[in-house]
Amino acid sequence: MKVIFLKDVKGKGKKGEIKNVPDGYARNFLFKKGLAIEATPANLKELE
């Protein structure tokens, strides 16, 4: 799953980066803790 990092996550990504991460990791950790959001076309446009 492609995500946009909202905060730095040690060993995974830095704020503003767009990366592919495992689906479970994104849903169960990154999204729940507010560390990242899904890289949807709308979210990507908002980032620019």
Rank of each mutant, 00 (worst) to 15 (best):
G34E: 06
R27A: 07
E17A: 05
N20M: 15
L35N: 01
K45M: 13
E38P: 14
K45I: 12
G11T: 06
P22L: 08
G16R: 03
K12Q: 14
T40D: 05
E38Q: 10
M1R: 08
F5R: 00
K12V: 15
G16Y: 08
K12R: 14
K32T: 11
G13F: 13
A42S: 12
P41V: 12
T40G: 05
L35W: 11
K32S: 10
N28G: 10
P22T: 10
A42V: 10
K7R: 12
E38V: 07
E38S: 07
T40N: 09
G16T: 02
E38H: 07
K45H: 11
V21N: 00
E48R: 11
K33W: 15
K45G: 09
R27I: 14
K33F: 15
G34Q: 08
K32M: 12
L30H: 01
G11S: 06
A39S: 04
E17N: 04
N43L: 10
V9R: 01
N20A: 11
G16K: 02
K14P: 01
R27W: 11
K45W: 09
P22M: 07
L6P: 00
K32R: 12
E38F: 05
V21M: 11
P41W: 11
I37T: 06
Y25K: 05
A42Y: 07
I4M: 08
V3S: 00
E46L: 15
A39R: 01
I18P: 01
G16L: 05
E48I: 13
G34S: 06
L6Y: 03
E46I: 14
L35F: 11
E46V: 14
N20L: 15
V9W: 05
A26N: 03
K32W: 08
E17M: 07
A26S: 03
P22E: 11
K33P: 02
K14M: 12
K19M: 10
P41I: 12
L35Q: 03
M1T: 13
G11K: 05
L47Q: 09
A26H: 04
K10T: 11
E46F: 12
A26I: 08
R27F: 11
V9T: 04
A26F: 10
K10W: 14
A39M: 06
N43K: 09
D23F: 13
G34W: 07
K32F: 08
D23S: 14
K45Y: 09
E48M: 14
M1I: 15
F31V: 08
Y25H: 04
L35H: 03
F29A: 05
L35R: 02
A42P: 08
V21I: 08
E48S: 13
V3M: 02
D23Q: 12
G34M: 11
I37W: 05
I4T: 01
K10F: 14
L35E: 02
K32N: 08
T40F: 06
I18A: 04
E38A: 11
A36V: 05
I37F: 04
L44S: 05
K7G: 04
I18Y: 04
P22K: 07
K14A: 10
K14S: 09
G11F: 06
L30F: 02
K12G: 13
D8K: 05
F5D: 01
L30S: 00
K7Q: 13
L44E: 06
V21Y: 06
K12Y: 15
L35V: 04
L6H: 01
K45P: 06
F31L: 12
V21L: 05
N28H: 11
A42N: 11
A42D: 15
D23H: 12
V3Y: 00
I18L: 06
A26Q: 04
N28E: 14
K19G: 08
R27Q: 10
A42H: 13
K45Q: 12
L6R: 03
P41E: 14
I18G: 01
K14G: 06
Y25N: 04
L30V: 00
F5H: 00
I18M: 07
G24K: 11
E38Y: 05
G13E: 02
I18T: 06
G13N: 03
F29M: 07
L30T: 00
K7Y: 13
E46W: 15
Y25G: 03
G24N: 12
V9I: 08
P41Q: 13
N20F: 15
G11Q: 05
K19L: 10
L44Q: 08
L47K: 08
T40P: 05
A39W: 12
G11M: 05
G13M: 04
L47V: 11
K2H: 10
F29Q: 08
E38I: 08
P22D: 11
I4D: 00
V9M: 04
N20K: 14
N43R: 12
I4R: 04
V3K: 00
K15H: 05
P22G: 08
M1L: 14
N28M: 10
M1V: 15
K19S: 07
A36I: 06
V3D: 00
K15M: 10
G34I: 03
F29R: 05
N20G: 07
K33Y: 15
F5S: 00
K19R: 12
E46D: 11
K14L: 11
T40A: 05
K2G: 05
K2Q: 13
A42L: 09
V9E: 01
G11N: 09
N20D: 13
E48H: 14
A39I: 05
L6K: 03
I37R: 08
L6N: 01
I18W: 03
V21P: 00
K12S: 14
M1H: 05
T40I: 08
D8W: 06
F31P: 03
L6M: 07
K7L: 09
I37S: 04
E17I: 03
K15Q: 10
G13A: 13
K12A: 15
K12M: 15
N20I: 15
V9N: 01
I18N: 02
L44R: 06
V9Q: 01
A26V: 07
V3T: 01
E46M: 14
K15E: 06
K2R: 14
V21D: 01
I4S: 01
K12H: 15
G13T: 03
I4Y: 09
K33S: 11
N43I: 13
T40R: 04
E46Q: 15
G16V: 01
K12N: 09
I37V: 13
K15T: 09
K33A: 12
V9D: 01
K7W: 10
E48G: 14
L47D: 05
V3F: 00
R27H: 10
K15G: 03
K12P: 01
I4V: 11
I37N: 02
L30W: 02
K7F: 14
Y25I: 07
V9K: 01
F31D: 04
K7H: 13
F5L: 07
G13S: 04
I4P: 00
F29N: 08
K14H: 10
E46K: 15
N28Q: 10
K15N: 03
K32Q: 09
E46A: 15
A26G: 04
F5A: 00
K10V: 12
F5M: 04
G34N: 11
D23W: 12
A39H: 06
D8G: 05
E17L: 03
K15W: 05
N20T: 15
A42R: 12
A42I: 12
F5I: 01
G16F: 08
E46H: 13
L6W: 01
G24A: 14
L47R: 09
I37M: 09
K45A: 14
P22S: 10
A26Y: 13
A39T: 02
L44N: 06
V9Y: 04
A26M: 08
K10D: 10
E48F: 11
F31I: 13
D8P: 05
L47M: 12
L30I: 01
K14W: 09
K15Y: 05
A26R: 02
R27N: 10
L35S: 02
G11H: 09
K7D: 06
Y25M: 08
K10N: 10
A26P: 02
A36R: 00
V21G: 00
G24V: 11
P41N: 11
K10A: 13
K12W: 15
P41L: 13
A42M: 11
K19F: 05
I18R: 02
E17F: 03
A36Q: 01
G16W: 10
G34F: 08
K7M: 11
F31N: 02
A36E: 00
L44I: 13
L30M: 03
F29T: 09
V3E: 00
K32A: 14
I37D: 02
K2S: 10
Y25Q: 04
G34A: 07
T40S: 10
F31Q: 03
K45R: 12
E38M: 09
A42Q: 14
V9L: 06
M1N: 03
K7A: 14
F5P: 00
D23G: 11
K12E: 10
K19H: 10
R27D: 06
G34V: 03
E48P: 08
P22F: 07
T40L: 06
N43E: 06
A36T: 00
N43W: 07
L47W: 15
K14N: 10
L30Y: 03
A36Y: 00
A39N: 03
D8N: 10
D8L: 03
G16H: 08
K19I: 11
L44D: 05
N43V: 11
L6Q: 03
F31A: 02
L35I: 06
A39L: 08
E48N: 12
A39Q: 02
Y25S: 03
G24D: 15
K32G: 07
A26T: 06
I18H: 03
A26W: 09
I4G: 00
I37G: 02
N20W: 15
E38D: 04
P41H: 11
I37L: 10
D8M: 04
T40M: 05
A26K: 03
L44W: 07
E38G: 04
K15L: 07
E48Y: 10
V3A: 01
G11V: 01
D23K: 13
A36G: 03
F29I: 13
K33N: 15
G11A: 06
E38T: 05
